[in-house]
Each structure stands twice: as C-alpha cells, then as structure tokens.
C-alpha cells in the first residue's frame, strides 16, 4: 500500500505542489533503495518458531497426563467407584436388610421357648467331629445352649414333648458317651 502524497489517505499535512512532487520522488527512491527481502527464508524462521511452540505444548500435555492414554482417567474413576460400592456392600450397614432377623447361634432362648424345652447334658467322645455333632443334633431338633465345658459337657435343649425320644436317640449314637438331664 503505497499512496503518493498527492493521493492522501485521511488527514495529511498540507504541502505545496512542488513539495508533493519532491516527496513523491523521495517515496519512489526509497522503494528502490529497499534491499531485496527473502520472503521464504523469513517465513521459515516464523514457521520454525511455531513448530517449536507446538512441540513444547505437546510435551507439556504429555507431562501433565503422565503419558497415559485418554481412557486412563475414565478407567481409574470406574475402578474407584466399583471399590467404593464393594466396601459399602461388605462393611457398611445394610438398611435394606433391616427386617431380616439375625439370630446368633449362642443366643439365649426366650423364656416361653425355654419353658417348652428340656435341657440335656451330653458328652461326646473325643474323636467326634463337629459335623458328626451337628448330624446328631439336627434330627432331634436340638439346640446347643452352652458348651463344651472344661469336662467336655455340652448343654443342649430339645422339645419337651420329645425329650425322652431324643435322649434315647442320642444314647444310641456311637459318638455319644453320656446323656443326662
């Protein structure tokens, strides 16, 4: 964009025609005086800086992301959520199971239920396994109330209506050494 002083753009200082001609000549000579400009070489310098900047940005991004793929953060979040869900299920209270009755094995029987049952003192042989004890107690509807004590005596409770029959069954078992009320 090279306007001659005689073709003004916007506000320009006033000048005589002779001065305008002289300034126009100055302009022409200054244009001649300008040394050649190596367009391509200058552009290569600019492009090299832009490339360097982009490479720097890429390196910064890699550093900030720890060279992990894009899905890494998503997967880590998912695993965290799953772990939290498992912990909630296993450790935390379960309100949806609040109505489920939990009866400890060794819990005391209620007074009414206890009144309807008879307690027996049973001594199992030393070789009897826990599975054999369970197998012996289950058919007679017996519950372990206490034991075994230091002498190996188990206290069990059986329905009062079948207490005699239960006593007979137990005495007949080879793993039972003694039964008493």
């Amino acid at each position: 964009m090279t306007n001659t002083p005689s073709q003004p753009t916007g506000e320009r200082p006033s000048a005589s025609p002779g001065e305008i001609q002289w300034l126009d000549r100055i302009r022409q000579q200054l244009e001649v005086a300008a040394p050649p400009f190596d367009h391509e070489r200058n552009w290569q310098r600019v492009a090299a800086r832009i490339d360097a900047e982009r490479e720097w940005d890429r390196a910064q991004n890699r550093r900030s992301q720890g060279r992990r793929p894009w899905w890494w953060a998503l997967m880590a979040y998912g695993m965290g959520a799953a772990t939290a869900a498992i912990l909630m299920t296993v450790v935390a209270p379960e309100p949806w199971r609040a109505d489920t009755a939990v009866v400890p094995l060794g819990a005391e029987e209620s007074t009414a239920k206890a009144a309807a049952r008879v307690r027996l003192q049973v001594v199992f042989s030393d070789q009897a396994t826990l599975a054999q004890v369970r197998a012996a107690l289950s058919p007679i509807d017996a519950e372990i109330v206490a034991g075994p004590g230091r002498l190996g005596v188990w206290t069990i409770a059986v329905p009062a209506s079948s207490a005699d029959e239960a006593e007979k069954v137990l005495r007949a078992l080879p793993i039972v050494e003694s039964v008493s009320r």
Partner: peptide, 13 residues
C-alpha cells in the same frame, strides 16, 4: 515519514 510516504497512513493512523 516512512509510514506517511510509503504506507500512506493518515496522521491519525
């Protein structure tokens, strides 16, 4: 002077 002569800019510019 350069901007005035060679670029044709106004005084305001």
């Amino acid at each position: 002077l350069h901007l005035f002569l060679l670029e044709g800019l106004s005084l305001q510019q």
